[in-house]
């Protein structure tokens, strides 16, 4: 990890309006949770439904996408990545530094709000809030790594990222049970299942498998992103 890369990336990511968008979405999640608490009261099933579909199903992948691509895409697009790449820095170090920023951002803007929403709706009961926060955490890491790789590999990272999150995880995962095995969302829910009180949450993937797949996906994506950054060619207008 390189402190300067972390600093530059952090400033670029949090300096713009993007951060306001992320903050707004986090606050909306907590606000919705509060409304549900006030209207429905304490209902752990509602909590699980809400956090599973809104937080883990939508907010976390979306944040992972915005932040995972956001830590590197703008620099590749405008060419300023050349200032990082024209240095005797190992490329994996650059990727890792950017991943750290992306993960930190998703933790702040997705994991913490998920936990807060869980506490608002169910308090500490059955460790539901904790379970979903843990899921949000692992999913944040995996999504950040995957979408960061996507941003290094293609200029259309956001499109492919959305396609994965919406079509694969959301749509195909809903109908084809096999697809769920290869779904960050399901791996994360498996973590929730193991943390929260039995019976509250169910996932199609066993915890062991889920953890292994989470680690493999994150490490492989990060490793490959480093490889691809090594051979990143800069488009010539000439």
């Amino acid at each position: 990890m390189n402190a300067t890369v972390v600093g530059l990336t952090g400033r670029a990511l949090f300096g713009g309006r993007r951060v306001l968008l992320l903050l707004t979405m986090s606050l909306v999640l907590v606000a919705l949770a509060s409304v549900l608490r006030l209207t429905v009261g304490v209902d752990h099933e509602v909590t699980a439904d809400f956090l599973g579909s809104v937080a883990i199903g939508a907010l976390v992948p979306l944040f992972g996408l915005i932040v995972g691509t956001g830590v590197i895409s703008p620099e590749i697009d405008d060419g300023s990545i050349v200032y990082l790449l024209s240095k005797p820095l190992p490329r994996p170090t650059i990727v890792l530094s950017k991943l750290v920023v992306a993960v930190s951002a998703t933790v702040v803007f997705a994991t913490v709000p998920t936990f807060v929403a869980g506490v608002v709706m169910s308090g500490g009961t059955g460790q539901i809030a904790l379970g979903y926060a843990a899921a949000a955490l692992v999913a944040s890491v995996a999504y950040s790594a995957i979408f960061l790789l996507l941003a290094v590999v293609t200029k259309h990272a956001v499109v492919y990222g959305l396609a994965y999150a919406l079509i694969w995880e959301g749509l195909i995962g809903g109908y084809v049970p096999g697809a769920r095995t290869l779904s960050v969302q399901q791996w994360a829910l498996s973590v929730t299942e193991s943390v929260a009180r039995p019976g509250t949450v169910s996932s199609d993937v066993a915890l062991g498998t889920a953890l292994v797949l989470l680690v493999v996906a994150t490490v492989a994506a990060t490793w490959y992103a480093g490889r691809r950054l090594r051979v990143l060619t800069l488009a010539t207008e000439d």
Binding site: L8, R11, A12, G15, D78, G79, S80, V82, Y83, L85, S86, K87, P88, L89, P90, R91, R230, V231, L234, E237
Partner: peptide
């Protein structure tokens, strides 16, 4: 190519203008 160590010897002034405008 694929040898970042050369940047100890090379200084590059790219043509594109983008250069971390917020700094």
């Amino acid at each position: 190519w694929k040898n970042p160590d050369v940047y100890r010897t090379i200084g590059l002034v790219p043509e594109r203008e983008a250069a971390y405008d917020f700094l």
